[in-house]
Write a protein that binds this DNA or RNA. Sequence first.
DNA 1: CTGTTAGCGCGTTCAA
DNA 2: TTGAACGCGCTAACAG
Lengths: 332, 332
Amino acid sequence: MATIYDVSQLAGVSLATVSRVMNKNANVSEKTRLKVEAAMAQLDYKPNTFAQSLASNCSNSIGVLVSQLDGPYYGPMMAEIESCLRAENKHVIIAVGHSNAATEIDSVDFLLSRGCDALILDVEAVSDDYLIELSQGPTPIVLINRYIAQISERCIYLNNELGGYLATRHLLDLGHRDIAYISGPKNKHDACERLEGHIRALSELQIAFDPDLCFEGNYKEEAGVEAMKFLLASGKTFTAVVGANDQMVSGAISVCLEMGMKIPEQLSFVGYDNIPFARYISPKLTTINNPIHEMGKMAALWLLKNVYNTDIDVLSVFSPELVVRGSACARS
Amino acid sequence: MATIYDVSQLAGVSLATVSRVMNKNANVSEKTRLKVEAAMAQLDYKPNTFAQSLASNCSNSIGVLVSQLDGPYYGPMMAEIESCLRAENKHVIIAVGHSNAATEIDSVDFLLSRGCDALILDVEAVSDDYLIELSQGPTPIVLINRYIAQISERCIYLNNELGGYLATRHLLDLGHRDIAYISGPKNKHDACERLEGHIRALSELQIAFDPDLCFEGNYKEEAGVEAMKFLLASGKTFTAVVGANDQMVSGAISVCLEMGMKIPEQLSFVGYDNIPFARYISPKLTTINNPIHEMGKMAALWLLKNVYNTDIDVLSVFSPELVVRGSACARS
DNA sequence: CTGTTAGCGCGTTCAA
DNA sequence: TTGAACGCGCTAACAG
């Protein structure tokens, strides 16, 4: 493997000059620059990134911590992050937190020990205080899907409460009054916020929230089937159900269909997230769009701008939006 | 940040000794080892991975190149790879190839330039020759989802032809004789192999393959809807359709459902891959299980064993298997 | 605009 | 079993 030294010899210049042409910025005369570039090409020279990192204390790597890698949710986000960063020749190191505080902290340490220049975190179990303290450390962080007032400028966040509100509001507008709710795990911020939105929509029409009509699931399909079975067995009346994410709704719908129910005629459903599959499920899911890939993009661009001083525009904010498809209809 | 030097001072030993206790193997007396460990703890010492990599020429990082990150397919694989590698304190750097030769090659170069100790590649567009040559380079590679005879020991591979055979065979066994096929892109190995399996099953019963009953899609849901529209409009008779992956089948089913058709009574479907969502689609997909996450695991373990000499057992081989659910029934 | 010279933090001989 | 010394490949002052 050719080193910077070999290049400098071949080009007849010093190490420093070679280093200068590599790192653009400095002033090098056209002539010597061409000489050096020719030498680099001839030797097929590739800089050693470890040496660069050691000397410059910059690794050009970003750590990305997500709570899971399987499931339909994080793929689009990772894809955006990778492509934005890659375009600037940064690389991404991944870690998975499994929504578990110990694992999340361990993952952060892992990423930090790997010398990441910055971290993109989608963490759920860890405390606000931990994150605030972390944000004061030497490595910049950006939070996805979480809002902490003290470090709000580092939070890339969707208004989950509003999304929950919109979902339920849609059903209310369609005439439904008895609306069941399949919640995400109560220990997750987004799950609580979505539920709050649901309750707010209800209260606008003076409808009391009925805890018996609410089932707490874990965001997976299987929880949706459990929830539906529970709700159906409860003997309670309801003409619509809101799910805290599309996966649970799809699980819930599957049990209804299996029982021969007509969806949405007999029961309306509204989901949340608008995962790619939502439009190919039958019936097509009416849901709340969660622009998770855009949030990934924004996180990446934010870092490019604030950590690497790249000259780019960071996107503006975004809001949850209702996507009307076929899983909810007017109350008969 | 404390360095090895600080630790050596505090412990009253030399740099080399500290280095020795970090890298276990060497002989250090119990007494001095404890002294050093105490010093490391007191200083909260964390080794600088760049310096380690530079000096040892080993980065403890594995590059993983997949063709896409969104979609239901690669998530489970990435999850397995991350967890296996992470357990051994290796980290994974990701890159996306987008099934495009230039991008794939660029990604490999990118990963290589990042000093990865080894590469896990899921590439489709690049030639066999390129991969064979790459495998002779200094950085070990493992191929997922691809078989190249000359480097077979580095290929982690599912028998796609057999899977295609099983899918069609199942429909044949159910009495179907006119079977449409929604193929993946013909420039992808797995797509061709699956189709070959389909044709073999057909030929076992002396049924000629009818090109008019075959539509080439791009593995996405949307291609499934296009395919279905095309097949329905063709005027050809068929009672069943095999899709080269679950996503296209779900797209295809969605158009049938929208037209009011009864699935599977009027038309049977068999998919491929058994993506997590397959069991929550309505009707639940009969499909071919593709143990992609196990392949990811195997790739990771193989590297641990062969590159890092970790003492672990590598999994045995696996085969595609039919998963019977509700999207295909006997011909009426 | 270019060259010289120190490090960056650690692994690894080679002696002792 | 331990320590001294060198080198990994590159960046960043500082001089000129």
